[in-house]
Each structure stands twice: as structure tokens, then as C-alpha cells.
Design a protein around this nucleic acid. Structure first.
Lengths: 349, 349
DNA sequence: GGCGGCAATCGAATCGATTCGACCGAATCG
DNA sequence: CGATTCGGTCGAATCGATTCGATTGCCGCC
């Protein structure tokens, strides 16, 4: 028994069969370095004969120090993340820009509990998406590992390239729009604010301890116009959560306008209003955030349109530049106000 | 200069500083094997002092032969894949079931051109999504590498576990529904059929050379009822493609009913009909496929509802079982007819 | 005809951990 | 009290490739 039948062939086996050294066989496969055609053919023939599938990516990545993998870390469970079109748009952009030439996107989640793949997965670079301070541990680990990081809409961290959105200013614009229409009694439906992701009324103390960067920024923007704004914290960005929030806010002592921190939440609030027999925008105005063109005929949602795919593209480009040894600059994107038909002046009387 | 400042610390450095052997240091980190508390503390302290981020995943995966990565291979560009809610649902299901405990999902694309990450990325198992025969090369490589494979809605391949959907039978049900309503002049809008993904009229020769498994299966189902069915091949599953197809089919000599192979395409066809001044279902009936509950008020799309998330879950479970050394069985899912208000009898006269 | 230079190939070190078998002292058991 | 575990630790082999430096011929040039 000279050869094990069960074991998968290695480059060494191929080289032996081809009658060349391992190094030459490696060169034949990688194409780097001078190899005569005859030798290459011999090696490839031997590989075919042994049913060799090519160099093992694991060994290669150990030696080369690169794995061809770009990780995308989200706080949500993946299934929640996929539900929000903005996340999908972001991934879309990243994939579009960075997902070429044999590099793959590794989707990871980090709930801050430590056992996530962030610390154990091989990767060349990381995009942090919608991450609060909970990821400090992971970020520290990645930094120690020397893995380039790009963060989309997160607090600025040392050594992490930032891709920003004007969350605060944009929400201020939307809030000002409501104020200009004459609204005084306004409520907000926020994205998750704290780690637990529990839904419930928005009390002051949650705002200071919160780690939901985007939610807090947008809340600040609303507070710039309505300092005493109260509301509801959703436990995720979905229509269902919006309905729950809408019912909670509109059932008793309803405000005349609702600022939802995402379009999905806004759609949910509108649904809730309909369920309660209220009309939009006559009885209650609703503004969203994102601009996902949710098809909720006959409504045309008033919202802040943000460039989701472009954010992803920028992140992807930054990653590529970091990997190439460059030093890309932070980018900030701005949202554009879209006046739809879900806002109007408050009902008089 | 005993120590290089630039080089990242290794386990060996940590062990040296802690005054223990490398093997002991390894045990201290991995937790496998007996290590006294005192020793473990010494090692962790040394690691902290050296700013050591923990064992290198690359080296670990080489030695252990596992990388904690499950790849999901799609034919589409990622950005196209993300656009279709069914793909997202599928990923959702896979992530839900298999994306736990430090394993990540690696998104790869394979256009059949060979330079994709399929051959170079480290991975423990693979889910093939919506793949035609174009992936034969990749499948062969993965098989040689001994990587377990699960294919969702693809031609059955040796050594690849199949997760199936009753595409043909389901479409037959939808087509029969139209026939029962009295429709004779019916057209189909298919998903991409060949590698080029070009849009255009559906000629017979494209059906034989086609590699789009799902599209062809659904087409066969429609042909079971309408043998001479003609139509249009879309270049992707999107509302825009549906509109293009709808305009092409309805502008001149329109059929009384259209079978769209996805809900997005169906929505597009409806939009096209509206643009042309036709009413649905009075002037033209439209059926879809998927059951994504597209919000196209006031329509309630007649469609075949398929369990997208469940398909993903099944794939995820199968992967886990394969990795555990088990031999899971193929699974077949069935779609359920949903009668909406986009189909009716053909206009008389 | 001697020699510099280049293409082709090879040997050996290296990447950074995991893991198997050996070893040793202390506690347990008969 | 001697033999046997067993917990704790260490050395060395191993995972499978890449890559650097050295070694061969062989050709062409002066």
C-alpha cells in the first residue's frame, strides 16, 4: 500500500507523481515564476490523474496571510438584517464594489456575547454595519489582529474608517417639515436603542445608556426641533414593529404626527392608523426615513431618501483601498427630503 | 532588539513570555485539555501584555481542517440576488438554521467563468442556490475537495443533496386555473433561461440549450396545460424586467392571460398593463409565483405560494447534518395555490 | 574558448497554530 | 508500601501550501 486511498491528495503527492519538486508544482499552479510548458503539463496531468482539486485554500491563506474574504458584521441576527431593505441595499453596494475577483462576503453577526465568528473567522477586512458600542470588544480584537475596518453609520472609533450618513441633520429637516405644517403634538418611533432590543415607551434614561447609534442620532435630530419629543422604541425595523408602535401611540391621546425612523416602521404606523380608523394624513401625518419606495398605494411616503447602495459602494471601495495599502478618507452621505402625501397640516379643532 | 515591534505576536511569543510551552499555551486558549488555573492565568496575562488577539484563524483552520464557514453560491451577481425576496428568504432560512455558534455565511457568485471564489475560498460546506448546469466545473472541484454540497432547486447531481420545489406541478396548477377560467390565448414570462441572461422572445431552441433549471421546470409545467405556449424570457426577477416583458407581450396582439414565473415579474406585467390602459383582471389575467405578498394595492396577486424560508431552513439543517457526518435525506417542498384578484375569465367578445 | 546571464528547477525554511505521545510528580487504591 | 492512575506540562510532528535563495544547465557574446 504505497498510497492511502482515503486521504485527499496533496500538492506533494502531485509533485511526486509528476516527478518534480513541490516548489515547482506550486509554481505550475499559481502561475508565479517561470515554469516550462512541458513541466506544467506534466504537473497538471498528474493532478488530473490523482483527482487533485488544486491547492488547499487554508494552507494558502496561512502562508500568504490573506484569505480573500471580506466580512460584514451586523448586530442583528441575519434574518432580521435581511428584512430591512436598507441593509440589503448596503450589501448590494458592497458586493458590487468589492465582491469581484474571487473575494467573497462573509456575513457575520455579533450580539456582543463574544462567541460570534468575528474572533474566529479568517478575513482580510471588515465592514461594520449599524453597530453600536456593543461591538467594542470585537473591534478591539480586530484592531489587534491588524484587520482593516470600515464602519457604516457608527460612532467614530480609532483606526476605523467611517462611512457616515447625516442622520441627525436629515431628521431635523423632516421634523422641521412637520413644524412648518403646524404640528405641535408629535411622537417618534425609533429603531432599537439598547442591546436588549426590547420594545416599549421611550423614557429618558434609555437614551443615555443606549448603544443604537443611528437611532440616537436620528432622535437627536428630532429633538433639535421638538425638544420634549416622546415616543416608542421599536425592537427592529419592520412593518410589524411599526404596527405595534403605531397602535401603542395612536390608540389613546394620539399625536397629530409621527416621525418613524425607518420607512418600514412608517408603513406599519400607517397600517395601525388605518386599523384604528384614522386617516393619513388627515388625522395623523407620518414621515419615514430611508426612501425605499415602499409600495403602499395609495400613499407616497414622505421621507428622507438616503443613498443606501452608494453607502455600500463607498464602503467597498474603501475596503479595497485599505487592502491595497492605501489610506482612504472618511465619506459622509446626505439624505434628501422627499415630500409625499402622508403629511399635512394638523386637523383643526 | 529581542522583540520585533512591527510583527504581530504569535502564540509562541505569548508562551515564551508566560514561561510555558507553546502546547500549553494553546490548551489554555482552546480550553481543550487539562490546564491549571494558575497556568491559564499566566498565559492570558502574557497575552494581554503582548496585545495578542488570540490564535490565528488561518493557522487554526489549516490544522483542524475546518474553517467555520458555510458558502452560499449563487449564479447571479450578488446585487441581483439580493433584489429577489425569495433569495433573501432563502438566505434568511439558512442563516437561521446554520448561522449559529461562530459559523458565518460566505456569499459567493459563480458565473461559470472560473475565477470565482468557489475554487479558492476556504469553506466547510456549500449551498448551491438556483444553479444550472453551468456550475458543473465548480461542483466537480468541490466534490474533489470533499466539501459537502446542498443544492436548492437544481438538477440532481451526484453527491449533492437536493432541496427541491414542485416547480413543474405548481405551475401546472396555476395554468390549469387559467384554463378552467376559459383562457386560451396565454403567454408566459420566464426567469432567465440561458447563461447570457438576455431578454427576448421565447423561441423553442432556447429551451433545449437552457441552463436555468427553475425557469425550465416551471415552463414545462405551463406546457403541460398549454403545449404551444409562447412568451418572453426575462433577464432577471425584477419589477422592471416584468414591465419590459409586459410591454413586449401586451402591446400588440395581447393574450388574455399571462403566467409570470415570479411575483416580481407579475407585478411588472400588471404595471405594464396599466401603462397600456388595460385593466387587470378584466382585460388580462396575471398569475405569479413565489407568494412574496407584494404590496400592490388594490391587487391581491394570484400566485403559487412557496415556502422560501423553510427551503433555507431545510438547507441549513442538511448542512449541519452533513458536517456532523450524517447522511440527511433530500427534501421536496410544495407550493400552495393562492387565489387572488388578478385572474378572471377572459373578456368575452 | 571562457564567462556572464537567464530560464528552469529544487531544497529548505516558513506561516501559526493543534495534537499526539511521552513524561513526571502526586494522590489513590489494594 | 508498591503499583496505578491521573492531572498537568512539554517536545515534536503535522496541517499543506508558498517563497526565498541556491543550483543547475544552456545560450550567446566578446
Amino acid at each position: 500500500m504505497g498510497t492511502e486511498a482515503s486521504a485527499r491528495p496533496t500538492l506533494a503527492a502531485v509533485a511526486a507523481r509528476a516527478g518534480v519538486s513541490v516548489s515547482t508544482a506550486s509554481l505550475a499552479f499559481s502561475g508565479a515564476g517561470p515554469v516550462s510548458d512541458a513541466t506544467r503539463d506534466k504537473v497538471l496531468a498528474a493532478a488530473a490523474a490523482l483527482d487533485y482539486a488544486g491547492p488547499d485554500p487554508r494552507a494558502r491563506s496561512l502562508r500568504q496571510g490573506r484569505s480573500g474574504i471580506i466580512a460584514v458584521v451586523m448586530e442583528d441576527r441575519l434574518r432580521d438584517a435581511f428584512r430591512d431593505p436598507m441593509n440589503v441595499a448596503l450589501l448590494d453596494g458592497i458586493a458590487d464594489e468589492a465582491g469581484v475577483g474571487g473575494v467573497g462576503l462573509l456575513l457575520l453577526t455579533d450580539h456582543g456575547t463574544g462567541d460570534s465568528g468575528v474572533s474566529v473567522a479568517p478575513m482580510d477586512a471588515v465592514v461594520l454595519v449599524g453597530c453600536g458600542t456593543r461591538l467594542d470588544d470585537s473591534v478591539a480584537t480586530l484592531r489587534r489582529r491588524g484587520i482593516p475596518m470600515v464602519a457604516v453609520e457608527a460612532e467614530h472609533m480609532d483606526g476605523v474608517l467611517a462611512i457616515d450618513l447625516d442622520n441627525r441633520a436629515a431628521t431635523r429637516v423632516a421634523a422641521q417639515h412637520l413644524k412648518d405644517l403646524g404640528h405641535v403634538r408629535v411622537a417618534v418611533v425609533t429603531l432599537p436603542i439598547d442591546a436588549g432590543k426590547s420594545a416599549g415607551a421611550l423614557p429618558a434614561e434609555r437614551e443615555t445608556s443606549g448603544t443604537g447609534f443611528t437611532a440616537l442620532e436620528r432622535l437627536r435630530g428630532a429633538r433639535d426641533v421638538y425638544p420634549l419629543l416622546g415616543g416608542w422604541v421599536a425592537s427592529g425595523s419592520s412593518i410589524e414593529e411599526g404596527i405595534a408602535a403605531g397602535l401603542a401611540l395612536l390608540e389613546v391621546d394620539p399625536p397629530t404626527a409621527v416621525i418613524a425612523q425607518s420607512d418600514l416602521l412608517a408603513v406599519g404606523v400607517i397600517r395601525a392608523a388605518e386599523q384604528l380608523g384614522m386617516r393619513v394624513p388627515d388625522d395623523v401625518s407620518v414621515v419615514g426615513f430611508d426612501g425605499i419606495r415602499a409600495d403602499i398605494v395609495p400613499y407616497d411616503l414622505t421621507t428622507m431618501v438616503q443613498p443606501g447602495v452608494e453607502k455600500g459602494r463607498a464602503a467597498g471601495r474603501a475596503i479595497l483601498e485599505l487592502l491595497a495599502g492605501g489610506t482612504p478618507k472618511s465619506v459622509g452621505f446626505t439624505s434628501v427630503f422627499h415630500a409625499g402625501n402622508t403629511t399635512a397640516g394638523p386637523r383643526v379643532g
